[in-house]
C-alpha cells in the first residue's frame, strides 16, 4: 500500500462529513427518522409505505437539487465515473438489491447505525467495506481493469 497524497483531502472530507452528520441530526431530531438513503428510496417503491411518500420524496428531491444549488454559487468539484456502461448497470442492480436485503447502505448503517452503536450496523459496515475492497482489488489488480 502507498498513500495517494496528491488526492488526499482531509479538510474538505471532514467538512463534508460534518454536513452529512448535521443532515442526519436534523432528520432525526425534527422528524424522528433515520437518514438511511436506501431505506428512504426503497420506501418509495413499497405500497405499504404510501402514507410516507411525502417526506421521502422531499428528502430525495433535496439530494437531487443539491448539485443544482451548489452550481448557483460556483462550479461543482470534479467528478468522474470510470465504470463502463455494463459494469454500471450491474453495479446499480447489486447496490439496489443488496442494500434493501441488508436493510441499509453507507448512510443508514455506516453513519447512522455506527453513531448509535448498533451491532447490526457495525457488522453490515464491516461486511460491505470488505467486499468493496475485495471487488476493487479483483477489478484493478487481478483483472487489471
Amino acid at each position: 500500500m502507498t498513500i495517494d497524497w496528491s488526492h488526499f483531502t482531509p479538510l474538505t472530507a471532514l467538512c463534508g462529513g460534518l454536513l452529512i452528520g448535521l443532515s442526519a441530526a436534523v432528520l432525526l431530531l425534527c422528524n424522528g427518522r433515520i437518514a438511511g438513503i436506501s431505506g428512504i428510496v426503497g420506501g418509495l417503491l413499497q405500497r405499504s409505505k404510501a402514507g410516507d411518500f411525502g417526506w421521502r420524496a422531499a428528502f430525495v428531491s433535496g439530494l437531487i437539487l443539491a448539485p443544482v444549488l451548489y452550481r448557483v454559487f460556483g462550479e461543482l468539484p470534479q467528478s468522474r465515473i470510470d465504470a463502463h456502461w455494463a459494469t454500471l448497470v450491474v453495479a446499480g442492480v447489486l447496490v439496489g438489491f443488496g442494500s434493501r436485503l441488508g436493510s441499509g447502505c453507507t448512510s443508514g448503517h455506516g453513519v447512522c447505525g455506527i453513531s448509535r452503536l448498533s451491532p447490526r450496523s457495525l457488522v453490515a459496515t464491516a461486511t460491505f467495506m470488505s467486499t468493496g475492497f475485495i471487488a476493487v482489488y479483483i477489478v484493478r489488480h487481478l483483472l487489471g481493469g
Binding site: 465504470a83 450491474v90 442494500s99 447502505c105 448512510s107 447490526r120 453490515a124 460491505f128 470488505s130 477489478v139
Partner: peptide
C-alpha cells in the same frame, strides 16, 4: 439477510464507486 445483503451491496459499491446517496447527487448534476 444482513450479511449477504451488505456483501452484495459492497460488491456493487466497489464495481462503480457509487452508493445510493451519491447516485442521486450525480443524477441531479446531470
Amino acid at each position: 439477510r444482513l450479511v449477504v445483503g451488505s456483501a452484495i451491496f459492497g460488491v456493487g459499491w466497489g464495481l462503480a464507486g457509487i452508493c445510493p446517496g451519491p447516485a442521486l447527487v450525480l443524477l441531479g448534476a446531470g
